[in-house]
């Protein structure tokens, strides 16, 4: 009996873990891309791009990720766009966290001293060269700790996907509870698994931070 319950729990957790990990990794990649595209768009020379970026950032920061995922999954079909649950989950989480990341990119870029921009002008760099070789290499290490926090937030927020019929680890734990009436065991396991994922993200960010250390940047 106990063995059956444990193997049931193990299978549930592993299934859920797969979804949670896929969501966290894919969502983070999307968030990373959005953060750069819209964070730099926010400081663009072209008004249209600036306005568009601000709209994206404020829309996604100002509304709940919960409602956003809901819209992607349940409302878009009414307009003829039927996203798969996984895609809707990745999009919802990625776009939401990307909006926060965009502000991180913007503030890190703007925190780079004026003297650096002026030196680039004096050395006749183009705007692209200025960002690519001077501003971003200095701003990137500043972004990393906050990106790490955002990634952890994304992982934790991924539990909302149960709403759109994705069986992530929280949903699986909940299902296990309903099946067996056990409450302590599934949530203890879920707690530990989330914490291990958190440690994994922490380790990942530490490694990237070491790589991005200015001492080791090569041209």
């Amino acid at each position: 009996m106990t063995e059956l319950v444990l193997s049931d729990l193990l299978r549930s957790v592993l299934r859920g873990l797969e979804i949670t990990v896929i969501l966290t990794i894919s969502g983070s990649i999307l968030a990373f891309v959005c953060a750069f595209v819209f964070g730099l768009g926010r400081v663009s020379r072209w008004r249209f791009i600036r306005v568009f970026s601000v709209c994206y950032i404020e829309l996604f920061r100002g509304t709940s990720v919960f409602v956003q995922v809901f819209w992607l999954y349940y409302a878009l079909p009414a307009f003829g766009l039927l996203l798969s649950p996984l895609l809707a989950g990745i999009l919802g989480l990625g776009l939401n966290v990307g909006a926060y990341g965009a502000e991180v990119v913007r503030s890190a870029v703007q925190a780079t001293g004026r003297d650096q921009y002026e030196a680039c002008c004096a050395l006749n760099f183009t705007r692209y060269q200025t960002f690519r070789y001077i501003i971003l290499p200095q701003a990137f290490p500043r972004m990393l700790p906050v990106f790490g926090n955002n990634m952890v937030e994304l992982m934790k927020a991924s539990s909302i996907v149960s709403l759109i019929s994705l069986s992530d680890i929280t949903f699986q734990a909940q299902q296990f509870r309903i099946r067996t009436g056990q409450t302590f065991l599934p949530f203890a396991v879920t707690l530990i698994v989330y914490f291990i994922l958190y440690l994994g993200i922490l380790f990942f960010i530490r490694s990237v931070t070491r790589l991005a250390n200015p001492q080791k940047v090569k041209v």
Partner: peptide, 29 residues
């Protein structure tokens, strides 16, 4: 491109070593 400037506080690029501070502008130009 005909004008160069040395700033009061130098404006060196802190993430590049001395050699690259001098080599990179030549490459990018």
């Amino acid at each position: 491109s005909r004008i160069g400037m040395v700033f009061q506080h130098f404006g060196l690029f802190p993430h590049l070593n001395v050699l690259n501070n001098i080599a990179l502008p030549q490459i990018l130009n």
